[in-house]
Amino acid sequence: MAELTYRDAVARGLAQEMERDERVVLIGEDVAKAGGVFKTTAGLLERFGPTRVRDTPISEEAITGMIMGAAMNGLRPVGELMFSDFLATCWDIVTNQIAKTRYMTNGQVELPLVIRTANGGGARFGGQHSQSLENWAMAVPGLKVVAPSSPADVVGLLAAAIRDPDPVVFFEHKMLFPIKGEVPDGELVDELGTARVLREGNDVTLVALARMVPMALEAAEALAAAGISVEVIDLRSLVPLDTRTLLGSVTKTSRLFTVEENPRLIGWGAEISSIVAEELFWDLDGPIVRITTPHIPLPAADELEDLAIPSVQRIVETVRRSAG
């Protein structure tokens, strides 16, 4: 067991899979010689060489299109988009081409590829480098969507994403890069579509993703002191979605709160709420409450951005007000 940062866990997951399978290759802007602008790919060029780890021009359509074509011809490529906001520049390739081609060809084309991208706010980067866009990808049939919250999950879920025969969009939260966590030694392979109950409780269920997970855990601690027993679920993956774990928890607690970094409208929690309302309506003791960023672009200044994104304090206050 070693303590690793979330940032180093990305490189470890990539290295583990590149070591195992020579079909795994990595391209993106500044991923090779520079080791990634967030240093998530440091050392991979030196270890695996320039054929398998390659810098691209600033050409997101080329990056995503090239990994699609490469996946059609025998590779298992990983493409990095430096910021998830840049998905907007290649959304045609991602949604019209990568997501749909298997279905439209009735299974003739298999696309074992991963798009890794730095996601989320909190770094004061302003509205074009801070968005939480998991729900965009979740809305498109044919994409799997993963967003880990811990270093161990980064390694295991990235390995699972690379081994998966379908296209996976892998969201790395940029505010989590420096956090540390225990990562088991040896090969680590997790399972997509499995949520984790990170804290058990009886009164309310808090379901969260990525950076909202540590916040939910901290809020649960504070709420425990106030006499509210909180169960915290880390969804980890939006597609496939582990509704069994979610519904099991809400059956027990009868209250659900979602903690989402995305802006309010059609955030992933809306789908979660819909499923729970439809399938567990008579088990609920109160309304489902969504804790989200307001429906605004993210601002840059410390005070404004902190106010926009859900905080531990906002989670605690919302739960106390609604379930206290």
Partner: peptide
């Protein structure tokens, strides 16, 4: 979608080069 398959074709060629 006009243009999309140019990078895809390039990617298939890239795989041929790598392999």
């Amino acid at each position: 979608i006009v243009g999309a398959h140019l990078p895809i074709a390039a990617g298939a060629a890239w795989a041929a080069q790598v392999r």
